[in-house]
């Protein structure tokens, strides 16, 4: 008890590794969907498209203003109570929905900031040669904004990976859920959670490396 049970920890590694893919899947799918949603929100906000703009403001306000766990409970347990057919939403889907909406609200603001950071003269130049709003966004503004937004978006992705640990409350046995159950069987909490912590850490560390690589690539046009 007093010493770390290393043998137990080593035995746990392959077991817990089996649940890592699900954790990564939840965060990966969540991130892609959240990025798409966040870009749409940011563009709507920047262009000030009537009605959509107001709806987006309410959406961001709600999903940024309430805890993720509350949102997960709403999607998973709340919705089927209103419409019983919504029981088809399984734990994985509800988790991805929650992660997507929650993080898209944050990311929309960070993308909007990046768009606003692109110098106004660029917009004026594009419009003066007859580009449409859509062309302006796709060809001029968004590529430049991406470089600025990348570090904060990676931040959210990292946060999202760790947020998947809430999924076991919806019955999704991902890395954290598997660890909790194993720890309950062995009572070796410290050992079990250390193994899980190191796994999360390694994944996040690999992402940081990816971020570094992407930053170098996106900076090519700016280095002289």
């Amino acid at each position: 008890m007093d010493v770390l049970n290393v043998e137990y920890m080593l035995g746990l590694v392959p077991v817990l590794l089996g649940y890592l893919p699900l954790t990564l899947q939840l965060a990966g799918v969540g991130m892609v969907l959240a990025l798409i949603l966040a870009c749409l929100f940011a563009v709507v906000r920047v262009l000030g498209i009537p009605v959509l703009n107001q709806l987006t403001i309410v959406f961001i306000s709600f999903f940024r203003g309430t805890p993720l766990l509350v949102q997960l409970f709403l999607f998973y347990y709340g919705l089927p109570q209103l419409v019983s057919a919504l029981t088809v939403i399984d734990g994985v889907t509800a988790t991805i929905m929650g992660l997507t909406m929650h993080f898209s609200a944050y990311m929309a603001e960070s993308i909007r900031a990046a768009i606003l950071g692109v110098d106004r003269s660029q917009t004026e130049a594009a419009l003066s040669i007859g580009m449409t709003n859509s062309q302006l966004m796709r060809r001029i503004v968004l590529p430049q904004a991406t470089r600025v937004a990348l570090p904060t978006l990676m931040n959210y992705f990292i946060d999202m990976i760790k947020a998947t640990s809430l999924a076991f409350t919806l019955g999704v046995t991902e890395l954290m859920g598997a660890t909790q159950k194993e720890a309950a069987g062995s009572f070796l909490y410290f050992e079990a959670f250390i193994v899980a912590a190191v796994m999360y850490w390694i994944v996040v560390e690999m992402l940081s490396k990816l971020q570094h690589y992407l930053e170098i690539r996106l900076n090519k046009a700016y280095s002289r």
Binding site: Y76, Y77, F168, L170, G171, V172, T173, G177, Q180
Partner: peptide
């Protein structure tokens, strides 16, 4: 079997 945190 479906495991989940007790609160769920």
């Amino acid at each position: 079997y479906q495991t989940a945190n007790f609160s769920g």
